[in-house]
Structures are given as C-alpha cells and as structure tokens.
C-alpha cells in the first residue's frame, strides 16, 4: 500500500482526489447503482423509455453492465499509471456489473423472448446469445465470491486466480454486443476496443514484471 506521503509530491491532484474518495463509503455505490436500475425499470413501465420499452430496457441494462465492466477493469491501470486509487470501489463496481448482467438476462428471458423453449433454442442455436450466456455463467462464481468471507475461505491466491475469469467474460460480453449489431456500428466496437485495451495494459505490465 502506498501511503499518502508517497503520492503527495508526485501528483498532488490525484492525491487530493484520492483523499476525497476516501470519504465516500463504498456502500453508497450499491445504493446509487441498484437505484438507477430500478429507476430505469420504472421509466420503462411508464412510457419514459420510448414506445418499445422491452428492447430499450434490455439494451440499457446490457450497456450499463459493459460500462461497469470497463470501469472495473480500469481500476488497476488507473492506480498503476495515474496513481488514482479506486480500489475501495472495485468490489461494488464488479457486483453492480453482475447485477446489470442478471437484470439484462431477466428482461431478455422473461419480458422479451418469453417462452422457455425459445429461450433454450436461442442459447443453443444463436452464437451471440451463446457467448453472452457463457460470459454470464463465468461471472456467477465471481459474484458469489465477492465478499470477505469467500476471500478468506479461498485464500488470496486462489481467489485472484478464480477472478481472472473476468477477462474472458469481459471479451465475450463485448463480442456479444458487436455480434448482434446490424451493419457496421461504432458503439459496440468502442466497448470491445476499450476492454481489449485495458487487457493489453495488463499483458504489458505482466511482461515488464517478468523481465524486471
């Protein structure tokens, strides 16, 4: 852990931001994050998301999951490269990401596809759904072990190994979005590039560590 004295002379701005962030308890993120999901649902139910609320809500939840995935993957590089410490919020970001993946899945299955046979057929026959489901399944154990008890139970090393599943899950999640778009669309590619970029930073760092 870097103490405040290490950071202050190097980057006064990030130090000040870090100091301010330390006063924000992580649980506020859960309240805001989950509350936003509920607010979107209310909007969808009352006409606030346009004339096709099912598709709108499904996409909003899916995009939020991807945005939180990008945010979660950015925590480590931001600390290493800019000295910005978002570590206290990483768990909340990750848990909220899974929260929105579950919400996205439920809207898709219950409100959109609606029939069990059709849900199963989509998962088996449609590759973009298959990889989306694969990403979802990979995230489930990560969600279940995002608590102090599980970390103690698994031990730091095994816990970190397990949580490397987030890397393939993130790539599959982004591909899921790219694949379902019609024509050449920019937005899904932005998420894919952001995720690949954040993973590339880790590979470089890993190599540097091995070489050093």
């Amino acid at each position: 852990m870097a103490g405040p004295s290490d950071i202050a002379p190097r980057a006064p701005l990030t130090a000040r931001v870090n100091q301010a962030l330390r006063r924000v308890p992580a649980w506020t993120l859960y309240i805001v994050g989950a509350g936003w999901g509920g607010w979107l649902f209310w909007l969808a139910a009352t006409g606030g998301l346009g004339v096709e609320p099912i598709e709108a809500l499904e996409h909003r939840y899916g995009e939020l999951a991807l945005q939180l995935m990008v945010a979660g993957l950015a925590v480590t590089p931001l600390r290493q490269h800019l000295g910005l410490n978002l570590m206290p919020f990483r768990r909340a970001i990750g848990v909220l990401c899974i929260f929105y993946v579950v919400a996205h899945f439920l809207v898709w299955a219950v409100l959109d596809v609606q029939r069990v046979a059709a849900i199963w057929a989509d998962i088996v026959e449609r590759p973009y759904v298959t990889i989306g489901m694969a990403a979802f399944l990979m995230l489930i154990p990560l969600g279940l072990t995002s608590n102090d008890w599980a970390v103690r139970r698994l031990g730091g090393l095994r816990w970190r190994k397990l949580h490397r599943l987030v890397y393939p899950a993130a790539v599959l999640g982004a591909l899921h979005y790219v694949w379902l778009a019609k024509g050449f669309q920019v937005e899904p590619l932005v998420y894919l590039l952001a995720i690949l970029g954040l993973l590339a930073l880790r590979i470089r760092r890993g190599r540097a560590r091995v070489a050093g």
Partner: peptide
Amino acid sequence: HPRWSQATERRIGGGLFASR
C-alpha cells in the same frame, strides 16, 4: 434469421409486459 427467430414478433405499443 441466422441470429434470431422469425416465428414470433412483438407488436410495438404493448408496453413493458406485452406478449409476443
């Protein structure tokens, strides 16, 4: 369609809980 079923459709205007 290779990426989705064409057997059913969603009629726009039914709201959040509309059936296919």
